[in-house]
Design a protein around this nucleic acid. Structure first.
Lengths: 244, 244
DNA sequence: TAGGTTCGGTGGTTGGACCACTGAACCACT
DNA sequence: AGTGGTTCAGTGGTCCAACCACCGAACCTA
C-alpha cells in the first residue's frame, strides 16, 4: 500500500514571526508584491497585523537572509527578484510551498546532485589521507548505532571532507537537509537499505585504492539509482491518487 | 539641560548587530567556542557586551540563518559544527575572514563552478525556448549600457532560466555574489573583456543551434580560462609581496 | 544655479515588562 | 523503588514606548 506523497509536517507550533515570514514569502514568490516595490513601514505592518514591531522585524530579517528583500536604513524594505538573487536556502521553502512536494524542484535538486557529488568523490579519492580513510572505515563498518540514512549522510560528509573543498562541504550540508526531509521516500524501501550498504562498501574500496575514476563511477551509479527510484515513486503516487 | 545618563560608545559604520555577529562567528569558526557548548543567555550577553538584548538577538538570528547555532525556546543557543551544518552563505563570510582573500576557498568555488555551470549550459541548450533565445540575444548584442561584468552575469542568468532548474538558478545567484566581490580579479584585464565578449557570442550560437555538447564545451573552455588566470594572478601577487 | 539646511519618514537600538517553553528538582502516591 | 504530577528557576519569544541614526526631498541662501 503506497500512500500519496505527503509532506511530513513537523508538529512544532510555528512562532509568530515565522507565520508572518511565510505569509510575506508567499506574497513575494507568488508575485502579489512586485519586484522593486517597497514593503510598508515596519510600524505600519506591525499595526496592520496586530503584532509588535520586533516580531515584524524578525520576519523581515529572515526574508533578507533569503535575499528576497533588501532592508536599508532610512529607506525601507524593497522586494528583489528572487529569480535573480534568491539564495539556495529559498528552495527549501519553495519545495513544499503548495502543500505537497514539488516534483520539478526535487528532480532538479537530484539532477544537480548527480553532477556534483560524483566529482566530489573523485577529488576525495585523489586527495584523501590515511586519517580520512580510517574515519570512512569506521563509518562504513562500525556505526551500527546509526540509522542507514544517518550513516549514509555521514559517509558523504567524510567524503566531502576528503575532497578538501569547503564548498563541496557546505553544498553537501545543503543536500543533506533535503535528505533528512525527504529521504524516507528512498529509505522506506528495505531493498534500498541493502543497496545503500553495498554502495558504502564499494565507495570505500575505491577511495581506499585512491581510484578517482572508480569512485566517481560508483557514486554516479548510486545517484542514478536514487533518481530513478524517486521518479518511480512519484509516478506511482500520481497513478493512484493524483489530481487531474 | 542634563545629558543622558547613557554612555555612548564610539560609533562605527557597520551595524551593531553585525559587529556582534562577526565576533561570534569568529569565535565559533576559530573554535574558541566548541561544538555542543551553549552560548550565554541573551540577557547575559547583552549585559556583558553593553548592548540591548534585541541587538544580541539580531546577531544570533543571523548565526542561526547560517546554521552555525540552533536557538531553542527555553533552552538557549547551542553551537553546531559548521563543517556538518554550515550553509553555503557561510563561505562568503569565511573567504575574507582573515583580512585577505582565502585562495583555497576561492579556487574551491571555481572548481565547483567549473563542474556545474557547463552542465547547466548543456541543459539550457536542450530546453531553451524561442522566447529565452530572444532574451539571450538582447543580452549579448543589445546591452551596451551594462558593464562587461554585469552583462556576463546577465548572460549566465538567462542560461540558468533556460535550464528550467531552480537549483541552477539559485546556485548561480550564489556564484554571482562572489563574481561581484572578486570579479575585478578577472575583468580588470582588458584582454579578458574581449575574451568575455567572444564567449558570449559563442555560447549564444551553441544555444541557438540547440547544441548541448557545444554549449557545454564553450562554457567549460571559458571557465578553464578564468580558473587559470585567477591562479596566475595569485601566483604573481605571491611572488611580488608574499611572505616567505 | 550650486551648495548647505531643515524636516518628515524610515530602519536601528534601547530599557523594561510579561508570556511560553524547558528541564530538573521535588513531592505524593502506589 | 518506581511512577506520575507539580513547582520552580532559567531561557527564548513577544510586547510596549521611546529615542537615535540615516535617507531623500523640499527648502533656503549665497
Amino acid at each position: 500500500m503506497v500512500a500519496s506523497i505527503r509532506v511530513k509536517r513537523p508538529l512544532n507550533r510555528s512562532r509568530l514571526h515565522e507565520e508572518i515570514g511565510d505569509i510575506l514569502l508567499r506574497d513575494i514568490v507568488k508575485g502579489r508584491i512586485h519586484t522593486g516595490e517597497r514593503l510598508p513601514a515596519e510600524r505600519e505592518m506591525a499595526h496592520d497585523l496586530g503584532v509588535n514591531r520586533a516580531t515584524v522585524r524578525s520576519a523581515l530579517k529572515w526574508l533578507e537572509s533569503l535575499d528576497l528583500i533588501e532592508i536599508r536604513h532610512g529607506l525601507g524594505a524593497v522586494i528583489k527578484d528572487y529569480r535573480e538573487s534568491g539564495s539556495p536556502e529559498l528552495i527549501r521553502s519553495l519545495i513544499t510551498m503548495d502543500g505537497h512536494i514539488d516534483e520539478d524542484i526535487l528532480m532538479g535538486i537530484l539532477e544537480v546532485r548527480r553532477i556534483m557529488v560524483p566529482q566530489m568523490a573523485s577529488a576525495a579519492a585523489s586527495l584523501r589521507t590515511d586519517t580520512d580513510l580510517k574515519d570512512l572505515e569506521d563509518a562504513v563498518f562500525h556505526s551500527s548505532e546509526l540509522s542507514v540514512m544517518e550513516r549514509d549522510i555521514l559517509v558523504h560528509h567524510i567524503i566531502a571532507v576528503m575532497s578538501n573543498n569547503l564548498l563541496y562541504l557546505v553544498l553537501l550540508n545543503f543536500f543533506n537537509k533535503f535528505m533528512r526531509d525527504f529521504g524516507y521516500l528512498y529509505f522506506e524501501d528495505d531493498r534500498n537499505i541493502l543497496r545503500s550498504q553495498e554502495f558504502h562498501q564499494a565507495i570505500y574500496e575505491a577511495i581506499k585504492k585512491k581510484n578517482p575514476k572508480k569512485a566517481k563511477k560508483v557514486m554516479d551509479g548510486v545517484l542514478e539509482d536514487v533518481e530513478r527510484l524517486i521518479r518511480e515513486t512519484f509516478n506511482k503516487s500520481q497513478g493512484q491518487g493524483g489530481t487531474p
